[in-house]
């Protein structure tokens, strides 16, 4: 079980590495599509990476309503569940 902080760190690492984004651009408010230019095909790679990093099962469906980095962090937190 990871804390929200840890999940955020994990998401930042994944985004910075997979898409070569400057860490300063990755904020909780950043919009994945509009600000970080991550499209649906990129999302497949991102989810794959997050699956490996968390060891949790995730599918694209779980992320359907995700728009911002914060949405992403909260979704992963929810998927970890108690």
């Amino acid at each position: 079980m990871q804390s929200r902080e840890q999940i955020y760190a994990l998401v930042r690492d994944a985004l910075a590495e997979l898409f070569e984004l400057e860490p300063a651009r990755i904020t909780l408010d950043a919009h994945l599509n509009d600000d970080l230019e991550i499209d649906s095909i990129d999302a497949v790679d991102l989810i794959d990476r997050l699956k490996k990093a968390t060891g949790k099962k995730m599918s694209a469906d779980d992320f359907r309503s995700v728009r911002t980095v914060n949405d992403l962090v909260l979704t992963i937190e929810r998927l970890q569940g108690p």
Partner: peptide, 8 residues
């Protein structure tokens, strides 16, 4: 490189 970077 990671796939998405190569694809871009």
């Amino acid at each position: 490189r990671p796939g998405p970077v190569a694809a871009r």
